[in-house]
Nucleic acid binder design. Structure first.
Lengths: 202, 202
DNA sequence: ATTAAATTTAACCATTTGGTTAACGATACA
DNA sequence: TGTATCGTTAACCAAATGGTTAAATTTAAT
């Protein structure tokens, strides 16, 4: 008795693969159908249009990118501890979904108005203020060095996300194959945390 | 006597705008023609095909991204001094060409094989080894803290480039309009340099 | 001024692509 | 068993798109 996968699921899985790797403009309904092993008309039978299907995949991608950031922010502990958790979470999650960030960022830059609104309306939209306030608090308490909280946030995100956005570039420059790149990313978890801690040390 | 702009130039300027904002797949030959204020057939008369035109724009974009990095590397001075120069150069250049990095990274991730080769064959391809060696040297001399040179390089690039790749996202999260974002980027020049210096301090 | 070459345009063409339709087959229900 | 609903397919359609062509116009050379 083999596991049955519903046609809906076949389609979503195929659409995820095609949309995230090719982008909206590069994605072809026929390729999604082929990838799912079904007839093209089925895509429209289940999901109406390319746009509708794309919205589902994009929303799902955004959700995955949000992680459980709020959970981390709302937890107890120092800001450096929280950053350590976030860095680890990001690099781990993105290692399993390497196409996510470039996909989301590229689509956002194209339809910024339509999409950014959707993005911020999400219920699990990270509560950034919590992070910013806490950084300021610890600065006042002389627990960490002085820094603009917004800049720190960008630094953390940048160092986590960039290696996935720029993978082919970095691989070219450093001449690493996929295996070596995996290793570099694994090492990166502790390297980035150490780097941030040193930068924030007083 | 008005300034004459050759048709070739009109086309290249239009193509640059359309390709970098829409990407290869989103770019339309008709839109390039309209943007240039000429007939669509002229595009083919001067540049044969969409592919040929794209290659020119992409190469040009890559060149701009390379900056004069080698010049910096080959210059005298400590590694932290060089990093300070690079950070300033990058944020300044990208502020004037905000679409460049996402454009290049997105296209690279799609045609990585075909394009990455072109990329590395460039005569002004940055000589990374110089940077890596120098970092190791200063670590041995106890001038900077211990760090994997490759990770440091990624950190520097990440913090410079990410704000441009993720502009709409960051603007949404931090609720900044374009003016406020310009300010944030300007502050960022010294903020990032200070951050890196603190992280590398012994 | 005449002619040849270069430049520009409108009309056209073939292919691709998202989407539709009508018929066919399976499944469930009476 | 008949029939209605759901799932699936092949064939088809209209619009979009990269590219071509042949004629018209401008520019340059003799």
């Amino acid at each position: 008795m083999k596991e049955e996968v519903s046609t809906e699921e076949l389609i979503i899985n195929a659409a995820r693969k095609v949309f995230t790797t090719r982008g909206y403009n590069g994605a072809r309904m026929q390729e999604i159908a082929d990838e799912a092993g079904i007839n093209k008309a089925m895509l429209h039978y289940y999901y109406r249009s390319k746009d509708k299907l794309f919205d589902i995949i994009f929303d799902e991608a955004v959700d995955k990118l949000m992680l459980r950031i709020n959970t981390v922010f709302e937890a107890q502990g120092s800001i450096t501890d929280k950053i350590a958790v976030i860095v680890d979470m990001y690099i781990t999650t993105l290692s399993d979904n390497p196409y996510l960030p470039l996909f989301v960022l590229h689509e956002m830059s194209q339809h910024s108005d339509r999409i950014v609104k959707r993005f911020m309306a999400k219920p699990n939209f990270p509560n950034i203020q919590l992070f910013l306030d806490e950084v300021n608090k610890e600065i006042k308490q002389k627990k960490i060095a002085k820094i603009e909280p917004e800049q720190l946030l960008i630094n953390v995100l940048a160092m986590c996300v960039f290696p996935f956005v720029a993978k082919p570039l970095i691989q070219g420059v450093l001449r690493k194959d996929d295996v070596a790149y995996k290793v570099l990313l694994e090492e990166r978890k502790r390297s980035v945390v150490k780097f941030i801690n040193a930068a924030l040390a007083i």
